[in-house]
Design a protein around this nucleic acid. Sequence first.
DNA 1: GTAATTTCTAAACCTAACTTTAGGTCAAGG
DNA 2: CCTTGACCTAAAGTTAGGTTTAGAAATTAC
Lengths: 151, 151
Amino acid sequence: MPVSEGLSVGALASRTGLAVSAIRYYEAQGLIAPWRNPGGQRRYQRADIRRLSFVMIAQQFGLSLPEIREVLAGLPDKRTPTPRDWARIGKGLRVHLDQRIDTLIRLRDNLDGCIGCGCLSLPKCALYNPDDRAKSKGSGPRYLMGDAPED
Amino acid sequence: MPVSEGLSVGALASRTGLAVSAIRYYEAQGLIAPWRNPGGQRRYQRADIRRLSFVMIAQQFGLSLPEIREVLAGLPDKRTPTPRDWARIGKGLRVHLDQRIDTLIRLRDNLDGCIGCGCLSLPKCALYNPDDRAKSKGSGPRYLMGDAPED
DNA sequence: GTAATTTCTAAACCTAACTTTAGGTCAAGG
DNA sequence: CCTTGACCTAAAGTTAGGTTTAGAAATTAC
């Protein structure tokens, strides 16, 4: 066993359940910053287990890695984050999640009124909401339903 | 103007807001099946506007294209779908959406109790629920948080 | 001291859902 | 008729989030 000079990437992987390749990828994306031992291998703090757990939870909530990086930027840089620190940035996640839930519930309600009734063909359709449309990196405008009521 | 022998792909694109390339891609994925005019160009029914609208709505709800294809398979093959037909497959979407909302609400509740309190480090954590973890095509098991309470 | 693990980097590969490009054809207007 | 714009196919490129591979160096185990 190493003389307790931090965790190796493999140890961190088995503690988090992530693949080693994923951990290195997250480092490349700026989500985690290990130091190197004399031989050039990555070494992690025990607090990084929690950091990666947070990343995984945030991903479930639908955040992209850049977004997670932003959220993590709210943690203190030079000391180990405290429970208070985690709770603070957790609030940010909560807001994000609330928005996603609200959007889906609104979509569900509209589904009942729109597809549910089979009309599905009007600009006045509540599902026609550009804000909800996935901001697909693709080009051009997207909207729902043509304007031909008789289709 | 063509003598009303169906819509061209460009016309369908402008009616739905989709890119022409996307419509052709959907055809390759089996989501829509135009016929060809004598010159070999695609021609669509007016009902296909609704079909593509349904695809876009289902995408917002998080369905993949293969999943949407499955749902669309519930439509009649040889006649234009009626409002009743659309309402019927719309019910399938509704179930899917309900599940997603339930999952997110459960995650939010757990977030309050877990990250919210800053503990974030236990196998007994409610966020440790393999069922919710994205079925990432990637390898191996994934779980949240190591088992070291003191981290 | 040697063998078996781990780790290292860089680059290639993977899936989903499309877009872009290249080179050629079809259709509609004047 | 001829030009312009819409369309055709096939293949390659794109983004996100990783994984796999290859060859070399560090570490650990016996």
